[in-house]
Each structure stands twice: as C-alpha cells, then as structure tokens.
Computed example of a mutant assay.
Amino acid sequence: MSQDEPTNFLYPFIDAQQENPESLLADLAASAQAKAAESLALRRSTLDANAALLEEAAAQLAARFAAGGRLFTFGNGGSCTDSATLAALFSRPPTGKPLPAWSLSADQAIVTALGNDVGFDLVFARQLIARAKAGDIAIAMSTSGNSSNLLAALAEARRRGLYTIGFAGYDGGAFADNADVDVCFVVRSQSVHRIQESQALLSYQLWLATQDRVAAQGVGVV
C-alpha cells in the first residue's frame, strides 16, 4: 500500500489523525479491544445456542466412528482452511484417539482436475462419489451457507447415507432447514471475521465432545 493510498476502509479514523500519533494509537487500541469483546460475546452466545446440537452431533459421530465410519470435511476460501484444520484435529489430535478424517480440498491435483474436467460445483460431490459410503460423515463449512459446490456435496452425501453437518453464518443461508443437512450450526453475525472465529470454537467443541463419547464407549474405533 502506498503512503498516499487511503486506509479508511480499514480504520476510518487513521487518515484523520496522522498528525496526532498518541490519539491514533489510543483509537487503534480501543478498536482492537472492542473487536475482542465482540468476538468473545459472540462465541459465548453461539456455544450456548448450539449446545444441544453439539451433543446430538457428537453422539452421532462417535457412534459412526465406532462402526467404521469416516469423516470428510470441505469448504471454500477461509472455510477451506477451517475445514482442513478440523479434519487434522480429528485425525491427528493433540490428545485422545485419532479418528479417520480427511479434508476434500487437501489434494491440489484432485481439486484442480475435477474443477477443470467437470466444473468447480462438483469438486467435492465427485470425491464423495468415489470415496464415501453409508455410515460416513460429511461436514461442510461456510460463512454464507449458500455455496453451490457445498450444497451439491451435501446432497450427494445424503444420497449415500452419510450423516451431514453444516457450519454457516448470518441466518444459516441454504444450509438452514435443508433436508440434506442433519445438523446446522449457525453463527448469527454479519461479520465474516466473527463468524469464522466462532466456527473455529464450535468445531473444536464438536471434536472435544466426540472424543469424550468415544472414550466413554470404551471400545476401539474400527
């Protein structure tokens, strides 16, 4: 960014206070504190609102893992990295039992081949056709809940007998009240940043609750 480029789109008060660094630093600190407080409040309210759904989903995941089920996660953009993090948390956990989980965006060759050959809308659905079976689990992560390739994958997962989970923001978008989605975790915010922060905590809580149930079962995962 050049020195002459305005920064109002980030912090409206920066350009107006270039000659007053002490006041500018105070405003920046206040802005950061306000965002942190907003994020904390939203994460708490989101966990409270989704507590029953988390327990319901964790019970399903634990039962399916015990029966030989596998987890497939997918998303676009920032949600792609979040879904990959979730798959890694299940498959290579810091503690507890490793569980079979894969991110469908992890293999660049597969994603780009499918995008080129059959279209981006099918990059996840086609992978589920090749790899998934009844008893598996599909988790789609999105801020809008409206991505066409995620909806196509969830529909394919439903046809194949997978347990389906959606993460979405705003009002849930097309994930909400969708026959192809067994459980939809909604972060009710208009900010993409706050949505993804709360989704990260929700996904961690889902992993933790699933681990607790797997341990309580006292049986090995197939």
Rank of each mutant, 00 (worst) to 15 (best):
M1Q: 06
S2N: 13
E5C: 08
E5N: 02
T7M: 10
N8V: 04
Y11N: 06
P12Y: 07
F13P: 06
I14Y: 03
A16K: 10
Q18L: 15
E19S: 08
E22S: 06
L24N: 09
L25N: 11
A29L: 10
A29K: 04
S31Q: 02
Q33V: 04
K35M: 14
S39F: 09
L40G: 00
L40E: 15
L40C: 07
L42G: 11
L42K: 08
R43L: 14
R43Y: 01
S45A: 12
S45T: 03
A49E: 08
N50A: 05
A52E: 15
A52M: 12
E55D: 14
E55K: 03
E56W: 00
A57I: 06
A59H: 14
A59P: 02
A59E: 15
Q60F: 09
F65H: 07
L71T: 14
L71M: 08
F72L: 08
F74G: 15
N76H: 10
G77A: 01
G77T: 01
C80G: 09
D82M: 12
S83L: 05
A84C: 10
T85G: 10
L89Q: 15
S91A: 15
P98D: 09
A101N: 01
W102H: 10
S103D: 13
D107W: 02
A109K: 06
A109F: 03
A113K: 07
A113N: 05
L114H: 01
G115Q: 03
V123Y: 00
V123S: 01
A125P: 07
A130I: 07
A132W: 07
A132M: 05
K133G: 14
A134F: 02
A134G: 13
I137C: 03
S142K: 12
S144M: 05
G145V: 13
L151K: 03
A152E: 15
A153C: 12
L154Y: 08
E156R: 14
L162I: 05
L162R: 04
Y163N: 10
I165D: 11
G166H: 02
A168F: 12
D171E: 15
G173M: 09
A176T: 02
D177A: 14
V181Q: 06
V181E: 00
V181G: 05
D182N: 04
S189L: 12
S189N: 12
Q190C: 10
S191K: 04
I195N: 05
A200P: 00
Y204S: 15
W207E: 09
A209P: 07
T210I: 04
A215W: 08
V221Q: 01
